[in-house]
Structure formats: C-alpha cells, structure tokens
C-alpha cells in the first residue's frame, strides 16, 4: 500500500510471478482433483434430495423425469432452459405409468419467499400434496404448514380444474379464514399462521395458473415414461 516504503533489496518481479504461478498451479491441481473426486457423489446427492421431495408429494412415485413448460408447449428438460419456462417433474410408479406431476411454486411469506413443490394429479385435476423446498418462516408458527394435520388435509384433493377453454383455472385457489372452507378450491388457513398459509395458496395458484393451461392439453405426452 505504502509504495514509498519498498525495502532496499526488493524481490525481483520475476521471482514474485514465479512464486505466485507455482502456488496457483498447485492449488489449481488440488481443486480439480477434489472436484473430480466429489462430482459424482454430489450430483447423486442432489438428485436424491429432489427425488425425496417429489416422491413425498406424489406418494406412488418410484422414478421421475424433469420437464419444462415453455410458451411453445412442454418438452423434457435438458439443454438451455427457455426463458419463462416452468419446471415440473413427471413422476412414475414402479410400472412406469404416470403417478403424478410435481410442480415448483414460490410466494412471499412472512419472513422470506416460501418455495414449495406441490403434487398435481392429471386424473382428478387436483393438487394432491405439497412439500417445502425452502422456507424461513418463524419456527413454531410458520412451520405449522407442514405439521398441522388440519391444514395438510386441504391438499388431499385441492381443486385446480381448468375452465372450458383450458386457458385458465376455473376457480382461483383461495386461502380463507380458519374454519370457513366451503369449496374444493379453498384452503382453510391455520389460525395464527395466516400469512404463511396464504403464501402456500398463492404459490400453488400462481404456478398452476401458469403451467396447467399448457400442460393439460399435452398430458398424453407424459403418460408413458420415456427411457
């Protein structure tokens, strides 16, 4: 920093460069080695974690394939994800038949964005369950959304039917005050954790609104598991 205070016998620049070069090379080697050594295990781990969540929301699933929905239609994931594409996972049972679809969703909660994965069943056109991907909701209150049985019961068969033109949801998914659920597309909020309950509803609604109109016409594409 203090350029005027260079000691009399300054190390020659070539020596500095040489040293730094050697050190960098050694370090680079170590990093590459570590990367190679751990890549497979880490990838397997990540896949496992995702599968666990997907299998949780689609209980019958034994395997899954990642898809994305673009404005042009749906196609298997891979390569560059198109801008504005919604990711979802087609989950298959042991026989290779479509068991359900897991869709990502996110909405602003009480503390931060709540990211969820919810299961969609093309047969009943309803949501069959959801799981948390990431949430910073207040422990003890906000995390009731995954422990409160009353609340989870909302997602046994949450109605997300499309309208006749297949352009939008027939009924918006709505979060209502605790104890006042009357329609199949309504979610009964948890008393005392209303904000987080609303976030879950909004996440489902937004994702479904965006994805289902594209997905439903082409459901047949997903019926059979591709190798």
């Amino acid at each position: 920093m203090n350029t005027s205070a260079i000691p009399p016998q300054a190390t020659p620049a070539t020596s500095l460069v040489k040293t730094l070069g050697i050190v960098s090379a050694v370090c680079g080697l170590i990093i590459v080695g570590a990367y190679q050594g751990t890549y497979d295990a880490a990838a397997a781990n990540r896949r496992l974690a995702l599968e666990r969540t997907v299998f949780k929301v689609v209980p019958a699933a034994k395997s899954m394939v990642e898809w994305q929905a673009t404005p042009q239609g749906i196609r298997p994931a891979g390569g560059e994800p198109a801008p504005g594409a919604v990711k979802f996972y087609a989950a298959y049972d042991a026989q290779g038949a479509l068991a359900g679809i897991a869709v990502e969703g996110a909405a602003k909660g009480y503390a931060d964005t709540v990211r969820i994965l919810f299961g969609y069943s093309p047969d009943c056109q309803c949501v069959t369950g959801f799981g948390l991907v990431a949430s910073k909701e207040t422990p003890g209150i906000g995390d009731k959304i995954v422990t409160n049985h009353e609340f989870l019961a909302n997602f046994d068969a949450l109605d997300v039917k499309l309208n006749a033109e297949l352009s939008a949801l027939a009924n918006q998914v709505k979060v209502v005050k605790h104890g006042t659920k009357s329609q199949a597309w309504e979610i009964d909020a948890i008393a005392g954790a209303t904000v987080t309950s609303r976030a879950v509803g909004k996440a489902i609604n937004d994702s479904a609104q965006q994805l289902l109109p594209k997905l439903v016409p082409e459901t047949e594409k997903l019926r059979k598991k591709e190798s």
């Binding site: 170590i30 990093i31 570590a34 990367y35 050594g37 751990t38 295990a41 781990n45 990540r46 974690a49």
Partner: peptide, 14 residues
Amino acid sequence: FVTVVDYAIQAVSL
C-alpha cells in the same frame, strides 16, 4: 482448501 471442503461436504451430505 475451502473449495475442497465445499465439494467434500456436498458429496457427503446435502
């Protein structure tokens, strides 16, 4: 070494 640890942890437990 931090990078190495980073990879290692990913490999061990996500």
